[in-house]
Amino acid sequence: MTEYFPLIMGVALFILMIPVLYRIWVGPTGFDRILGANVIGTKTAVLLVIIGAVYDRVDMFVDFAIAYALLNFVSAIVVSRYLNRTISLKEMEAREKKAKA
């Protein structure tokens, strides 16, 4: 059982990521897409540990997982900071339409 555990977890995680991917694809607003990408990024850190467990090199892959979680955090802060600093997305679209017309 212990040897199949990482494999089962990995496959289940992959299947459960599909609804989140759907939200990235469809997502009515841009924020939904960012949120979905953030969730998948967090789960990728788990997936990296799982890959390490499958190849019996967890000590190596844990470092990747930390670095990935860190960069995921930085990316979320970047996006939210950019949206905080600029006018709202709706207004930006309205201005673009005005510029075209």
Partner: peptide, 18 residues
């Protein structure tokens, strides 16, 4: 980190008139 990034995203959405 995850709750912090959720908070930052939520605040960005709120200030963006979502």
């Amino acid at each position: 980190s995850t709750p912090t990034s959720s908070h930052a995203l939520m605040r960005a959405a709120f200030e963006d008139d979502e």
